[in-house]
Design a protein around this nucleic acid. Structure first.
Length: 950
DNA sequence: AATTGCGCATA
DNA sequence: GTATGCGCAATTG
């Protein structure tokens, strides 16, 4: 297969548009003021394809009229965009010139779209034994895919994916690539100006295709539809057929495929270089010369390499065995040019895998089971409950497994006493200090069992946490892990209890056999995953991080979540009423100014009123979905000119406050405890931070006076208690100072200086006492910006400084703190060499895009390389503090409880008699959680509510 | 009834 | 410029 001739047909406009918009936020402007984004984007793609694939035959296809001097843009592109951007119009002649100089054939046919030209050529080439790759991101082309015709599709973030027949069938849920035409005809495609059937989107189109097979099939059988949908389809039959026609790529364009005309030949290097120089493409010249130099000097080697690449793509099975092996955690995956391997190897399921899953009857059988259980050294268990809220969920059963493929299930009675009786029999197991308990998301099981007064003791192994450390960027739910690492698809909970929402059953109502299968399978799989992950953890410091941080923290978080926090609902209700009056007053004056009533909260309606009706701006900005942009930034800019804008901003602020916090929080009070129990997610933030949800207590307002009031609603449990908040002061800056060993900054911290004032004093060269508010504020912005990877552009947006002043400030900043800059570039270098960066405790973050050829993507990865160790180290440190504080609170039998964590802050419900001791304990543990060359400083405050405690 | 995009709250 | 979660409107089910 690999010695077949390969033809690459490039869809020029699609790639030009793509290239242009890739740079839209940061357009390439050369010294002559030309916007060269589109040329740059297109050439990068083209060279990338040539470098990767070394095609022997290649052509670039344009819509009608592709010569250098007279180019028209096909209507379809105009239709749904305001106007072809200037930057694209001007790019076309340049691109044609470059292609000519590169001796790459340009294909155009008057009156035909590039799609049609490519389609016709691909089919003709196929007859002559060629394998064709259509280089385009446009999914319409999927209809042309055959055994010898592939889509070669650039993917976001660099790299390509190849779509052959299996990928297309899977992607569009069809049985023949030709049905893609019907699919697009039904669904419509805004970017290609295909109207589609009204009311039909992706889901409905797939449903119809599965049911009727084609547009014609649908239209002939509308009697099988009902309601509104029936009316709509029947009324729009013609539109449907037209849409299908529009979506069809024509295969009868009068062009010939003469292989010779498509052969790659040597480019006119001096000419191309000259054009690039004129356009001021320095890096592209390098790229270009390298690309072609290799091809000329070692053709043999390259050809081999190229055919290998193709081979793996065309025979996905080999990817499976050679590439990311199913049992290796990180195959050195060719993240680009990857082919989906679904469908190729049949997934294992409970149906085709031998297993021994058994339920255990009450009485003597259970006694024998427990006896056996107590002899094990490591057991995986999984609780099944009536719901997802551990505070209200009842145990339905518990599954156990300690041998792969084998396990037991203990059903629990609905009757409270009987359930408690059974759990008591299991108490020795759960409270055993020696038997290791394995589970997936043990925090949940621990919380459930805590409600039965069972404390899970002894060593723990949580597969979800293990995988979080092994690959924090992935998702960690069991189904994904089973499919990724065991090639096994577990019984889905939905097949047992139905889709969530309407009439979802409880686990209680599932037959015992099904319960057993489902539950034991989970335990079995978790055990298998544990065996895999156990070995992977051994690498690096990950094991320590697992044993000493994440696992102990799991118990701490379970305790905090069970504890909850007291909420003053009355206070929130009165706040809500105050907001109501203010909001309706604003509403009135906005309607008055607008001359009509509308939904101010709807960005669409608001945009129409502001820009269509009131015409406040000449050329309003639009969002990518075609609406007028009404974001904070844009409105703030207009606020000074129109009174209504400020009112809208105020309205937005207040309604946001009311709906998100003031009205939402009381609904989150758990009725059984009368308290708010957030859920800390230990495995979602790629940097190692926690996240909080249901409700999110990590984003309670503080910046504005009005918003801050919400914090008054968080109160101690009763009058014997007081809230205490402990904040790390500038922990991220201290970390970057320590890690970079930047003495100037370190000594500022050591001397207890105000770091932002200190920075201002140094970069503005004034005595620290004479630093102005503005100087300090700007210095503060840079200090924070450094942590996120500043650009002059970003800085000038956030300050009153111009772009050049910002650049100057950043330069001076780096001169003041030279080692900071060195540290930052070392992080990037480390990431380039190793593919990851790490925190002080060795928590890794993998940055696959660090070597991306796409500057935007690569830039983001580079900022991550700097930010992740900082943010992550701070997360590590507060986690240590939490574990140590929790231990001490327990050891001393304090009544004081730790309630909340907000990234650099801990909140406690302090029993008043313990206050002095707790203040001391918390401060000490937090400040000494981890030894850095910079002292850590913790500020502590107490109060009758969370606002006062700040 | 579920999904998507926007806008916005925190560190 | 980093890291999150959530409410609303709009869209499609």
């Amino acid at each position: 297969m690999s010695d077949k001739k390969r033809l690459f047909l490039v869809d020029a406009y699609a790639l030009i548009f793509r290239g242009y918009y890739a740079f839209i936020k940061n357009p390439r402007i050369n010294s002559k003021g030309e916007d060269t984004s589109a040329i740059m984007g297109f050439m990068n793609s083209l060279l990338d394809v040539i470098k990767r694939e070394r095609p022997d035959h290649l052509a670039v296809c344009f819509d009608k009229g592709g010569s250098a001097d007279r180019v028209e843009i096909f209507e379809a592109y105009k239709a749904n965009r305001d106007e072809t951007p200037e930057g694209i119009k001007t790019a076309i002649p340049h691109i044609c010139n470059i292609l000519e100089a590169m001796h790459i054939p340009i294909m155009v046919k008057e009156g035909y779209e590039a799609d049609d030209v490519i389609g016709t050529l691909a089919k003709k080439a196929e007859k002559e034994g060629y394998t064709t790759f259509m280089v385009t991101p446009d999914k319409d082309f999927a209809q042309l895919v055959s055994e010898n015709i592939f889509m070669y599709r650039p993917v976001f973030g660099g790299g390509y994916e190849t779509w052959g027949i299996p990928e297309v069938l899977k992607k569009f849920e069809v049985t023949d690539p030709l049905q893609v035409i019907d699919f697009l005809g039904m669904m419509g495609d805004a970017s290609d100006n295909i109207p589609g059937l009204p009311g039909v989107g992706e889901k409905t189109a797939k449903k119809f295709l599965a049911q009727f097979g084609s547009m014609e099939g649908l239209l002939a059988n509308t009697d099988q539809l009902k309601g509104k949908m029936k009316e709509k389809v029947e009324a729009n039959g013609e539109l449907g057929l037209l849409s299908k026609k529009l979506a069809t790529i024509m295969l009868d364009v009068p062009v010939e495929f003469n292989a010779k005309d498509f052969e790659m030949s040597e480019p006119d290097v001096p000419k191309v270089t000259e054009i690039f120089q004129e356009l001021e493409f320095r890096r592209l010249i390098d790229n270009f010369t390298k690309t072609f130099a290799v091809q000329q000097t070692t053709p043999g080697e390259v050809t081999n390499k190229a055919s290998e690449v193709t081979k793996t793509k065309e025979t996905p099975k080999e990817v499976k065995s050679a590439g990311a092996g199913q049992f290796s955690l990180f195959g050195a995956e060719p993240s680009s040019a990857e082919v989906s391997t679904e469908n190729t190897l049949e997934r294992k399921t409970i149906e085709n895998t031998s297993h021994f899953y058994q339920s255990v009857a009450p009485g003597i059988a259970t006694k024998l089971f427990v006896k056996n259980l107590m002899h094990q050294t490591s057991v995986c268990f999984d609780t099944e409950t009536t719901g997802l809220n551990p505070l209200t969920a009842e145990l339905v059963g518990i599954a156990f497994s300690w041998e792969v493929g084998k396990g037991f299930y203990l059903p629990f009675s609905e009757k409270k006493e009987e359930a408690q009786e059974l759990i008591e029999q299991l108490r020795p197991f759960f409270e055993s200090e020696t038997i290791e308990k394995v589970g997936q998301n043990l925090k949940y099981d621990i919380k459930v069992l805590a409600k039965y007064n069972i404390e899970v003791k002894g060593p723990l192994f949580d597969t979800m946490l293990a995988h979080y450390l092994i690959n924090p960027d992935m998702r960690h739910n069991m189904d994904v892990l089973a499919e990724t690492y065991l090639n096994y698809t577990p019984v889905s909970i939905e097949t047992l209890i139905g889709k969530k929402g309407k009439n979802q059953l409880s686990m209680r109502h599932v037959s015992l056999e099904k319960q057993t299968e489902y539950a034991v399978e989970d335990a079995d799989i978790t055990l298998q995953l544990k065996k895999l992950f156990q070995n992977e953890l051994g690498e690096a410091n990950t094991q320590t991080l697992f044993d000493d941080i994440e696992i102990p923290l799991l118990r701490v978080l379970a305790a905090m979540e069970l504890e909850g926090i007291n909420l003053d609902e009355k206070f929130l209700n009165s706040l809500s009423e105050q907001l109501n009056t203010d909001i309706s007053n604003l509403e009135k004056s906005i309607y008055e100014a607008a001359g009509e009533e509308f939904n101010i909260a709807s960005p669409k309606q608001l945009g129409d009123i502001l820009f269509d009706k009131m015409k406040l701006v000449d050329k309003p900005k639009k969002t990518k979905t075609g609406q007028y942009a009404t974001g904070e930034e844009i409105l703030s800019y207009l606020a000074k000119d129109h009174e209504i804008i400020q009112q809208i901003l105020d309205y937005r602020g207040l309604s946001k406050l009311k709906s998100t916090y003031v009205d939402a929080l009381p609904n989150q009070v758990e009725s059984s405890t009368k308290r708010v129990h957030t859920d800390y997610m230990q495995t979602v933030a790629a940097t190692g931070r926690l996240s909080s949800n249901n409700p999110n207590l990590q984003n309670i307002p503080i910046r504005t006076e009005r918003g801050r009031q919400v914090r008054k609603a968080f109160v101690p449990r009763n009058e014997d208690y007081i809230l205490l908040a402990a904040d790390y002061s500038q922990i991220e800056l201290r970390i970057i100072a320590a890690l970079s060993k930047e003495e100037t900054m370190i000594s500022a911290f050591k001397n207890g200086e105000d770091i932002h004032a200190s920075t201002a004093s140094k970069v503005f060269n004034v005595p620290i006492a004479e630093v102005t508010r503005e100087q300090r504020s700007n210095a503060k912005t840079v200090n924070f910006g450094i942590i996120y990877g500043v650009s002059a552009f970003g800085l000038s947006n956030q300050t009153n400084l111009s772009r050049s002043e910002s650049k100057e400030l950043i330069d001076t900043y780096y001169e003041t703190y030279p080692k900071l800059r060195k540290f930052m570039s070392e992080q990037v270098d480390f990431a380039r060499d190793n593919g990851y960066v790490q925190t002080v405790l060795g928590r890794r973050r993998y940055l696959k895009d660090i070597n991306s050829r796409n500057a935007v993507v690569r830039g983001a990865a580079e900022r991550n390389a700097v930010n992740a160790p900082i943010q992550g180290s701070a997360a590590d440190i507060i986690k240590i503090a939490m574990i140590n504080i929790y231990k001490k609170l327990q050891a001393n039998n304090y009544k004081t409880k730790m309630l909340l964590q907000v990234h650099d802050e801990l909140v406690f419900d302090v029993y008043k008699p313990e206050l002095d001791a707790i203040k001391d304990l918390v401060k000490t543990e937090m400040e000494h959680a981890y030894k850095l060359e910079v002292p850590l400083d913790v500020e502590i405050d107490t109060g009758l509510n969370w606002l006062e405690a700040h």
